[in-house]
């Protein structure tokens, strides 16, 4: 049973079609990057898989069931700049919410079997040192690790990470990518990661999903990130260059990849 199956799916927001004709199959345990320009509908794909949005056409299957029925089987880290609202809440408490945040009733300290699990998740992402601090006082990379720990703590089978590398510096982008890869191998989870730059992820990817021009295209990186495929997808001449150290540079995009100013204009 595949982890994710999209058959001829279209989605609309406020009556406007975001993308359509999407056919995607993701096997379990794969590491998948979701790429594409701003406002192309990458986060929309994530919301669709979470069941926060319904498709306007086609069928969606997540872990063999309809979206929105999984609860703790899916770990989710939403897109965000940072905890700019600086809530005065410790990292450990934020992580713990991934375990019992949806439960009603008072947490009873004498029945607290969660402490060990919280510690384990925090150690797994290497956040032990700063997990006791208020999350608003942690750096972007530290916050991202804590949020990944929260998404992981319920032992999900599928991790949906919406731009976790956003606003991180290059060394942190590489180390968070490596961390996610290690987790998916150790925990045998399927990972879908929305990103702007494929390079930090390239060593680990099984598949990429490109969302652009109202369409969705999935396949192995070597097949998708090519002159022909991207040119057809964007309907404008695109050239993929490979640098001597193996990095990919995509040239000719309608929008410069480094230009992120309006990224959050669209939800």
């Amino acid at each position: 049973m595949p982890a994710i199956e999209l058959a001829d799916v279209a989605v609309a927001r406020d009556g406007r079609t975001v993308w359509s004709g999407a056919n995607v199959d993701i096997e379990r345990g794969e590491f998948v990057a979701v790429l594409g320009p701003n406002a192309a509908g990458k986060s929309t794909l994530i919301e669709l898989l979470l069941g926060l949005l319904s498709p306007s056409a086609g069928t969606v299957s997540v872990l063999g069931a309809a979206p929105g029925t999984h609860g703790s089987e899916i770990g989710y880290v939403p897109q965000r700049h940072a905890f700019d609202q600086t809530p005065r809440i410790r990292g450990t408490d934020v992580v713990r919410l991934g375990l019992d945040g949806t439960r009603f009733g008072l947490p009873l300290p004498w029945r607290d079997g969660h402490r060990a699990q919280v510690q384990e998740a925090i150690e797994l992402v290497g956040a032990t040192e700063y997990a006791g601090r208020a999350i608003g006082e942690c750096s972007g990379g530290e916050q991202q690790r804590l949020l990944i720990a929260r998404a992981l703590i319920s032992s999900p089978q599928l991790l949906l990470l919406d731009e976790p590398l956003d606003s991180l510096d290059l060394p942190n982008q590489s180390s968070v990518s490596a961390l996610v890869d290690r987790i998916r191998r150790e925990r045998d989870v399927t990972v879908l990661l929305v990103a702007h730059d494929v390079n930090p992820l390239l060593p680990y990817l099984d598949r990429v999903i490109y969302v652009a021009g109202g369409r969705v295209l999935a396949g192995p990186p070597a097949q998708v990130i090519t002159n022909e495929t991207l040119t057809a997808l964007y309907r404008t001449p695109i050239e993929v260059l490979r640098t001597s150290d193996g990095r990919l540079v995509v040239v000719g995009l309608p929008e410069a990849p480094a230009h992120h100013a309006d990224r959050h204009a669209h939800p």
């Binding site: 989710y76 809530p87 809440i89 945040g101 949806t102």
Partner: peptide, 12 residues
């Protein structure tokens, strides 16, 4: 309060 979207995805 902390994470509207994730809470909603988790069924809150």
């Amino acid at each position: 309060s902390i994470d509207d979207l994730v809470a909603r995805a988790g069924g809150v």
